[in-house]
C-alpha cells in the first residue's frame, strides 16, 4: 500500500441503538484489505468505544480512518462539551456518563482506558465548550 486510504463516517448522536455502525463498517473494510485479524480487532474495539463516547457525551461527531503502510489511524472529532480533566477521564472507573447509560451496558469508566489499551498512540485534544478530537494509531 503506497497510498493512504481514507474512510469517513458520520456518527449519529441521537440514536444509541445505531452506535457502533461505523466501527462495524471499518471492520469490514479492513478485512477486505487483508489486514491481520488482531490489528483489525484492536482498531475496531478502540473505535467502537470512541463511537459510544461520542453518542453518550457529545451528540455524535465524525469518525475518520486512515490506512497507510505503517498502520491505521483513527480520528474522532466531536463538538460536544469537551473534557475538563483529561488525566481524570483516563482513569479506569471514572465516568461522567448519566445513570441511564449504565443500564445500557456502558458508562463504567472504561471507554478511554480501553481505547488507550488497544492502540499504540493516543492523543486527546479537548477544549471545554468547543469539542474533542481524539487521534489514535494502531501500528502493524
Amino acid at each position: 500500500m503506497s497510498d493512504s486510504l481514507n474512510f469517513s463516517y458520520t456518527v449519529d448522536g441521537e440514536n444509541f441503538a445505531s452506535a457502533g455502525q461505523a466501527s462495524v463498517q471499518v471492520k469490514k473494510e479492513l478485512r477486505q484489505l487483508g489486514i491481520a485479524p488482531e490489528t483489525i480487532r484492536r482498531v475496531s474495539i478502540a473505535m467502537y468505544e470512541g463511537e459510544i463516547n461520542m453518542v453518550i457525551h457529545a451528540g455524535g461527531g465524525v469518525a475518520q480512518v486512515n490506512v497507510d503502510d505503517s498502520g491505521i489511524e483513527i480520528v474522532l472529532k466531536d463538538e460536544g462539551p469537551g473534557i475538563a480533566n483529561i488525566e481524570q477521564a483516563m482513569q479506569e472507573g471514572f465516568s461522567t456518563a448519566p445513570d441511564n447509560v449504565r443500564s445500557l451496558g456502558f458508562g463504567a469508566g472504561m471507554g478511554l482506558p480501553n481505547m488507550k489499551r488497544y492502540t499504540d498512540e493516543m492523543h486527546i485534544d479537548s477544549t471545554v465548550g468547543v469539542g474533542t478530537t481524539i487521534t489514535m494509531k494502531v501500528n502493524y
Binding site: A17, A108, M110, N114
Partner: peptide, 25 residues
C-alpha cells in the same frame, strides 16, 4: 452486563454471557 468490561479483555473464540438486552451486546 457491562460491555466496556467485556471490551477490556480480548479472548479468542469466546462466548459472552449477559443479562443485558440491547443491540450493543
Amino acid at each position: 452486563d457491562m460491555m466496556s468490561d467485556v471490551l477490556a479483555y480480548v479472548k479468542d473464540q469466546a462466548v459472552l454471557l449477559t443479562g443485558l438486552m440491547n443491540t450493543q451486546v
